[in-house]
Every structure is written in C-alpha cells, then in structure tokens.
Design a protein around this nucleic acid. Structure first.
Lengths: 97, 97
DNA sequence: CTTATATTTGCCAATATTTGACAAGTCAAT
DNA sequence: ATTGACTTGTCAAATATTGGCAAATATAAG
C-alpha cells in the first residue's frame, strides 16, 4: 500500500520536526487526508507536491519524480509484462524526443 | 491521439482482410466502439486484447505489451521528468523481483 | 491507569470520469 | 444518387475519485 512518494514526505516531515496538523493546515487539507497521502492511500495533486517540496526544503524534481513513478507503478503493478512495457515506452520516448 | 495498440490492431485487421463490422460482432461491441479503440480514443479491456490476439492470430504478449505501454505513456505524456520517473520505476521493479 | 495529543480508519455524499449505445456524419466507390 | 465502411458527436448510466467528518486507535506523559 505504501508508495515511494508518501514514505518520502513522511520522512521529510519528521526530519523537519513538523506535525501532520501543521503541514495539513498549510496545504489546506485535513489531517486524515495528509495521513492518507503519506500512506499512499490517496494521491497528492501535482500542485501539492510542489508545496511539500517548499515546506520541507526539498528538491522539486526529486519529489515530482517519485510522485510520477508511483503512478507508473500503479499501472504495471501485478502485470507479467511490466518490464517489456516499460522498455517499449522508454524506447518510444527516446524516439519522439 | 493514435496509440501503438490501436494502430497495431487496425493493421492486423486489414492484414486479415476483415471489416470493423465483422470484428466488432465477435467482440460484442458496436463498430463505433471498435473504431474508437483502433484510433486510441477509447481503451480496450484486457480481455478484449486477448480476443484481438486470437482473432488476428497474433501473439498475446505482443499485444498486451503494447496495450500496457500505451497506458504508461498516458501517465508520462507531457511530463518533463518522464524519463527519470521511468528509470525510477524500472529500478524498483528489479529490486522487488 | 488516565489524560492529552497525534495519527489512522471508516464511511458518506458530492463530483468527476469512463462507459456503452445510438444517431448522424463523412468519405470513397460505383 | 446510392451503397457500404468508417468516424464523429452526444448522452445518460455506471463507476471511480474526492474531500470531509466522526470515531477508533496509537503514542507519550503524568
């Protein structure tokens, strides 16, 4: 259930000595929602990812990458052909660029 | 708009000398729906992917891979960090295995 | 153990997205 | 102008996602 992004922002919150209550109010969500985002039960919005980065003095791109990777993972989770598909899309990406 | 899977099954349909009407009835959908799947406007169900493979005497895994890759592509389309995210998830996949 | 605070869980209604179906459209060949 | 193949547009029904609240469960301190 947990995902990379959620684990990361939980860790960052602790490292910054903040409570869910404090962070949640900054993002204008309630603490149950933040709890769910941290545990990967809900997906953060892209805009919120940037807010996390700012609050925690973390790198935008690092968090955005984890956040995107989680979404990719959701697609291939449990798929036998996951790695083939990843190769295929990586290849296509290079081609189009 | 077009995607890899749609283009492939359209090509396979032609190669097998079949009309949308004929294929659609086999899959128990209407021709507008098949048209949309072929053009990437709608997503086929996994079960339908297998039906396509059977009808067109094509390889299950090849079609399933394209179909999955399209879904991955939808996630990263237009994202600046697409390749980073792909790397990240590829890495995670290897690790978990 | 009891209280106080932090986090998590469960649930629900509002909203948004996806779906399947149909009618009408275009296009090419005759 | 008619026919057949395919595409486009629209719609309501089904499904999924969302945000928020109330209640449950931890965690820590006295």
């Amino acid at each position: 259930m947990a995902n990379q992004f959620g684990s990361k922002i939980k860790e960052l919150r602790k490292a910054n000595g903040l409570l869910q209550r404090q962070v949640a109010s900054q993002l204008e969500i309630d603490t149950p929602m933040l709890s769910k985002i941290e545990r990967g039960e809900r997906k953060a919005k892209k805009e919120q990812v940037l807010q996390f980065a700012k609050l925690y003095k973390a790198d935008n791109n690092e968090l955005l990458t984890l956040w995107l990777a989680d979404q990719l993972y959701d697609v291939i989770e449990g798929e036998a052909l996951a790695d083939e598909a990843l190769k295929s899309v990586t290849k296509k990406l290079k081609k189009d660029k």
